[in-house]
Amino acid sequence: MPTTTIAEVAVEVTDDGFFVDPDQWTEDMAPILAAEAEIPELTDRHWQVIRFMRDEYFAKGTGPTVRMLGKTSGVSVKELYQLFPMGPAKTAALLAGIPKPRGCI
């Protein structure tokens, strides 16, 4: 597994950039990860989704899918795509420092 440095901390990530260990994540990493995902500024709405992703991951062992997010996070699917244009479930998981959602089998 490759290692990358985010906010001066060495972090183990997968080939597509997802955290291997969500406990390595800290809040100050999110804006840096966001910039890489072409999201210039994290709003309260972004944070609502990021926190929700982490809570779900720690409760269930996997991040939610977009459809599940739309039903449970308090942010509609339409808005989720406005917040994370490159794909809400994947991008939010990336920013929240959790593994890629299993979602689809």
Binding site: T65, V66, R67, G103, C104, I105
Partner: peptide, 8 residues
């Protein structure tokens, strides 16, 4: 449209 579906 979206996963999961029967018989992917």
């Amino acid at each position: 449209v979206d996963m999961p579906i029967k018989c992917p």
